[in-house]
Design a protein around this nucleic acid. Structure first.
Lengths: 225, 225, 225, 225
DNA sequence: CATGAATGAGAGTTCATTCAT
DNA sequence: TATGAATGAACTCTCATTCAT
């Protein structure tokens, strides 16, 4: 199983032939850009860098995007779409609030190991124009609200202990968001491992439980035991 | 109680007179730079921006720093010094591993609400030269090792449940680090509130404890109850 | 006969059309730069000066050279190539040592009246990077060694009187090098005149010969008598 | 015998005490500046460089000179004075034209091994203001005229063979001037050696004389035989 | 479609020079 | 007399963006 991005089809192959789906090429630009933005930040990534890695010339990029910032915004959009998809799935599922939180952590952590997902939380919002910033901020607020509502569900149904949902949501989301800062696709940890461990640590806490038998809230997905 | 930096003496006052303690001026440059770096990122902050906010001209900055990057590195250093101080204090204290972890979270979270502390975790390492990067990375590794050792202490002494210390440390540190991304000095939450809530949420977990009576590991500092 | 550079096609004509041989344009940049470097020195010649004389803008120069110093180094290279060509021709010719020295002076003096040749000896080596300096110095050493070997040939074959070849070479090379300091393409003296007179003065000396009949070592090229 | 400049009293010692002849200090500035101008060129020598080598501060220099260029001009003046002195001495002496030429070469070469003398011929005239340039050019013309007149004397009295005095003067002056480009005070050759060898090579020429007996025009100073 | 060429704006940095103490 | 501080002007270099082919 090749987890390496480089081991996959390199993105510039999409530009090898003149006759190729323009959508495919656009996507190739986006994937390459995301890679570079994560490697060197948006500001230090020049259009030349992107073009060079795709084996095309700089102005060719302008066939697919009007401005540099548009590339950036599109990266955000792909990333947020990924998150959105898993969130709506969880919200519609049944279970206790704590179970939903655990599911949230698990699937959100997974997204944070994918380039587009990492972009959403890692790239500097200051590079977005006012309008684009609005869009992205809205989106992030939505995620936050979802997580808080899961926690409140849990408080209500008794699966979550008493706490300030706002701060609790910040701590959980922060832990997961931070994954995008240290995760390396080539590294020793798989997304699965991280996701399930995070789900357990954050819901159960570090402190030893009185009785370790009664864990009703196991993380979804492959059990890490 | 003025929590706002802007409510304090504005930094440019340090440059009001020509003969003034140079150390004070240097510090004023640093504080202003930190502010701007957090507002707009290092890359988008020009020396002109810093100078303008201090009511001086760009080349005047070169009396206090040799290169722009030196300002950045110095911000990192002030921030890491803050962290270091509280860390050594905790390490030398007695208590269970879990208590140390809680103390770590509490005091680290507080640092993350101070500009220099925020710089350490929020600014983009890619802006540092190879050598400076080495220095900063070393420092961060040290923090991570400390936290892991506290967790291992806890596993040994039974205060912490079984877990992978590496991933657990990542999740806790991540949650706290992320504070620097959303915390606003002007915002509604004080550093204290955040710190104590985080310490509890992360050590005790979200899930309701079987019996809420037996919490032996209360966070240090003012109780948030 | 137009000896003036300015009377020729002005270099900026190469930039009249957008699609034009890039090599031609690069060469035009180089010739213009050489002119300016000789007029005002490298340090006082700004990229704007060069661009202005070519009727283009400053950043356009970066299509042809990566750094300002690269322009300088390339001037050196064109100049040294000119010298090299004539030197290898002489070295392979037959004749007494003195004849070779005379031929050296003659052809070297001619090069010193050409802009690129003048650059080699007139421009300040301190403007070169360490690596480029190495390259240029190597080259100059080679010239010096060649001249010394001709003199030693002459001492061996009896055509040159007894002397320290090192100092003799310095004096001859110095006289010729200095041409680049006073020669003006627009001036009254042609390269030919200078070259042949120099060849005779330096080989025969100023002092009147016992018998002016037996000059076996006439300078090559058109006789100046 | 310490030929090294550095082995002498370092120039900054002149500034060790507050009470010191201002003229001495001015001279120290000048000597230091000359050193640096020769090492790094005028353009690359900053006032800070000069001040640093003298262990004083930059604005202190403005007590002795009004503008940077004034320092430069003064270096030229000290140098030209040195040349002037020896020239008038020679002109007033009796002897054949060739003897005067030889004496000229000998003493001029010696000046070219002294820092202020080197400055005159090595520094870039383009750094002088229009007015200062006029002054220096005038001076150089005077030297040239002197040398030409010696040669013409020689042609008239038969000690010099037939030649174009202008070009002959250029070649001789050039050879000597060039000394300032390669001479190193720390190097293996003394000024004396260079001067006497140059005088002989340039007057007698490289070619072997029919009879080496009849050299009537020996160089002045210590014989190099 | 695609590209080489060109540009305008702006960055960090250096430095001679002046001001205020 | 001497100095630390400050400035304005200049320079090299980078880059997103547009034009012309």
């Amino acid at each position: 199983m090749a987890r390496s991005v480089l081991a996959q089809q390199p993105h510039w192959k999409a530009f090898a032939s003149r006759r190729r789906d323009p959508a495919t090429k656009r996507e190739a630009v986006l994937k390459t850009a995301a890679e570079l933005f994560l490697e060197k930040s948006y500001g230090r990534t020049s259009l030349n860098d992107i073009a060079a890695r795709l084996n095309i010339t700089k102005p060719a990029l302008y066939h697919y995007f009007h401005r540099k910032e548009e590339i950036l915004l599109e990266c955000y959009r792909w990333g947020t779409t990924l998150i959105e998809e898993s969130l709506t799935e969880i919200a519609s599922s049944s279970g206790t609030g704590l179970e939903k939180v655990a599911a949230f952590i698990y699937s959100y952590a997974n997204v944070m190991t994918v380039n587009f997902g990492r972009c959403v939380m890692r790239l500097d919002e200051g590079d977005l124009s006012a309008q684009a910033l609005e869009e992205v901020r809205n989106y992030k607020r939505k995620i936050d609200r979802r997580l808080r509502s899961f926690i409140q569900d849990g408080i209500r149904d008794g699966s979550v202990g008493p706490c300030d949902p706002k701060i609790a949501a910040f701590s959980i989301a922060g832990a997961v968001n931070w994954i995008c800062m240290w995760y390396e696709p080539e590294g020793p940890l798989t997304g699965e491992e991280i996701a399930s461990q995070f789900a357990r640590t954050l819901t159960q806490g570090l402190a030893r439980r009185r009785t370790e038998v009664s864990r009703r809230t196991a993380p979804p997905g492959p059990s890490a035991d």
